[in-house]
Amino acid sequence: MSKTSSGTLYRGREGMWSWVGHRVTGVVIFLFLLVHVLDTALVRVDASAYDAVIATYKNPLMALGETALVAAILFHAFNGLRLILVDFWKQGTKYQRQLLWGVIGVWVVVFAGFAIRHLSLAFGGH
């Protein structure tokens, strides 16, 4: 099947691409949490090793990574609320597109607020 079924990518619309985004951000958050549980657990093993690991996070690259992680979490969280509405609110399926634009709108505002603060703290040298 694999050889024969490959053709063009299916051209879905908003619903499909928001699902792709939801899954990708879900996996990204999961991978982060995995690492985060491990590095935090280190504090019980060896406190100075923990401090050393955490210190390596304080660099511009990590600041950008954190910004991307927050972007992923915010999208996943807001779109997750949209999916709950789509499943359980009577008018949810009818307004799924408008709900997605709402999600993107709120996401842009909240993320911009966070990014400005976070990056100016990381790069502004305060």
Binding site: G12, R13, E14, G15
Partner: peptide, 9 residues
Amino acid sequence: CRTTFNCTE
């Protein structure tokens, strides 16, 4: 079902 709406479309 993951509500991608491909079916409806």
